[in-house]
Design a binder for these strands. Structure first.
Lengths: 343, 343
DNA sequence: CTGAAAGCGCTTACAG
DNA sequence: CTGAAAGCGCTTACAG
């Protein structure tokens, strides 16, 4: 198999620096047991020579690998591709490679991928897909990740997972509250929800926020139509058709992510339903095209790219006793797809 | 570093199967020198035990790695995330991991990433970003990839690159011709082009197609405004503003990819320019939101997901003397953003 | 067709 | 603080 031109080995660096293999290894790993002066010298020599450790040898010998494993539900979905972009960007500046795999929103596949990544001896695992509300669905993944951390691996998750690890927590509940408040303040009461799979914590958290806002206005989520569908554009299209058919008096639709909201807009347009004059539509995430739609989509902005960067940043920090948890903040972005309730 | 529970080694499989380490290795690698009966037996035992080779040991010993390296310009761009999705999908079914990295449309970064991937001993490299028209810009990458292939690595590229490797060739020129023909047949003559960086083969090929169509109608590309900008949404926005300002009589705009076309639509909308009544707009790629825009974007569909799958498929086939080249086909998708020239 | 042994490039006890 | 040596789990000449 290909071996890089620069088949420079640690022995070469050691020889050049005039130290033993062991000392060179310790110096570069930043392990103690080497005088600071010597270590600095070795590092300088390694730098001048452009030495890059053979990750396979390192891993085989029991060292850790700099590779980052990233699990997303589906990279073709802009929500995840923006997160991945953030991870790749930061990884690039740290000279780390990123292995990406699909979980397809299937806990079993997710488990398989986690095992694959561990088998490949990645040093870091980032789980970017939503967690599952039912702990049983994640029990095995949780055990696997715990063992991985026990053995020195680093883990960070994006979203609410049943895993004890550093976490980036999207402002799902507060965002749900904000978007619902927005529609309520515009006078809407006959609001329909286009929801994703109820097993995802992302979905339940966003719904919880919406429910909280409704209650402050004396409404109950249970009394509103909640159409559960795929977390995708075609899911949104189907759901919108159902809403038009079953709940024709609806004046506003909240889709639990932008992909679905875009599908909703598409169906409404096909049915020549004026947005926002007859029905207001709001989404969640603020994927980059949301601003370019017509009408521009009112949505809750989550900083996906930064979320990816932040997750990797957390994972790269030395672990602490209690996992870190970082909120993301959110921002209600009001564009043209929402307006006053039709009189 | 984390070691999987199933720290099952090849010796364990060999013992269980009652053969030597060497025989077990050969049997699983499908190398000859083992009777077919014995080999089958070893493979069955390995399967039952759930054995997975330690890729690091394999790589160190000189074997090849099943990891796939994928280089994209920017994973946040839907064109690339759809290609990546195809690669990940096929890789998943083959139990291969995929390492993705950004080249940022910078030949130097691309070269660095290629070197990184080779240093990580990936078995396959897929270059998904456009090639560069100037061979000098790719000279080093080309040499690096050639050496990699020489050493047994497999390479596939998407787009026209100065590399001798299996290639998936998007129908850029024919697509350019199709979209230009479409606008010409609608009566447009004052067509402006929103172009990406002229150093990319994707750009020059699409322009060449447009030029060919124009010539058939007695027009010359050189006489039309070609605004060169970033291959992104904001590039499209800027270019559209320039066109409105400098070439106010323009009746149609061809953007060389959908990202830019979406930016163009956005700017036209901000300026209250009716599409397609006053200006028609067409894009290229058919990213998934193109259908959901309002007006729906007329564009040239390239099968990005399949392109990703196909590239990996080619790379996974045994190499042949002459690199394979597969065209992608294309399809002009006429939606609502293009219409007859205003009278 | 099959096996014993060397070696890939590291890290890490174990001595000094 | 530093070094010599064993060992990680494979593959691949080299013998038989």
């Amino acid at each position: 198999m290909p071996r890089p031109h620069s088949a420079l080995r640690l022995v070469d660096v050691a020889a050049e620096a005039g130290v033993s293999l062991a000392t060179a290894s310790r110096a570069l790993a930043g392990r103690d047991g080497v005088s600071e002066r010597l270590a600095a010298h070795v590092r300088r020599v390694a730098g001048e020579l452009g030495y890059v450790a053979n990750m396979h040898a390192r891993s085989l010998a029991g060292g850790s690998t700099s590779t980052v494993g990233l699990i997303v539900h589906e990279i073709g979905d802009p929500y995840f591709s923006e997160i991945a972009s953030g991870v790749l960007r930061l990884a690039g500046t740290e000279d780390r490679m990123v292995q990406i795999c699909h979980s397809g929103r299937d806990p079993e596949v997710e488990l398989r991928q986690i095992r694959m990544l561990i088998a490949h001896r990645v040093g870091v695992i980032i789980v970017a897909g939503s967690g599952y509300t039912d702990p049983a669905l994640q029990a095995e993944s949780k055990a696997e990740l715990a063992a991985f951390q026990e053995a020195g691996g680093r883990v960070a998750v994006i979203g609410r997972h049943h895993v004890s690890a550093d976490a980036v927590l999207p402002d799902n509940e507060a965002g749900g509250r904000a978007v619902a408040e927005h529609l309520l303040s515009l006078g809407h009461r006959r609001i329909a929800i286009v929801s994703g799979p109820g097993v995802l914590t992302t979905v339940t958290d966003r719904l919880a926020g919406i429910a909280a806002a409704l209650e402050r206005h004396g409404l109950r989520l249970a009394d509103l139509p909640v159409v559960q569908t795929d977390f995708t554009g075609s899911g949104g299209r189907l759901a919108a058709a159902e809403i038009l058919r079953e709940y024709p008096r609806t004046t506003a639709i909240i889709a639990l992510n932008d992909a679905m909201a875009i599908g909703v807009l598409s169906t409404l347009r096909a049915h020549r339903v004026a947005v926002p004059e007859r029905i207001s539509v709001a989404g969640f995430d603020d994927v980059s095209v949301a601003a370019d739609l017509n009408p521009g989509l009112t949505t809750v902005r989550l900083p996906m790219t930064q979320m990816g960067e932040l997750a990797l940043e957390l994972a790269l920090k030395p672990p602490v006793a209690r996992p870190r948890r970082k909120g993301t903040g959110h921002e209600l972005v009001v564009r043209d797809s929402t307006g006053p309730v039709p009189s």
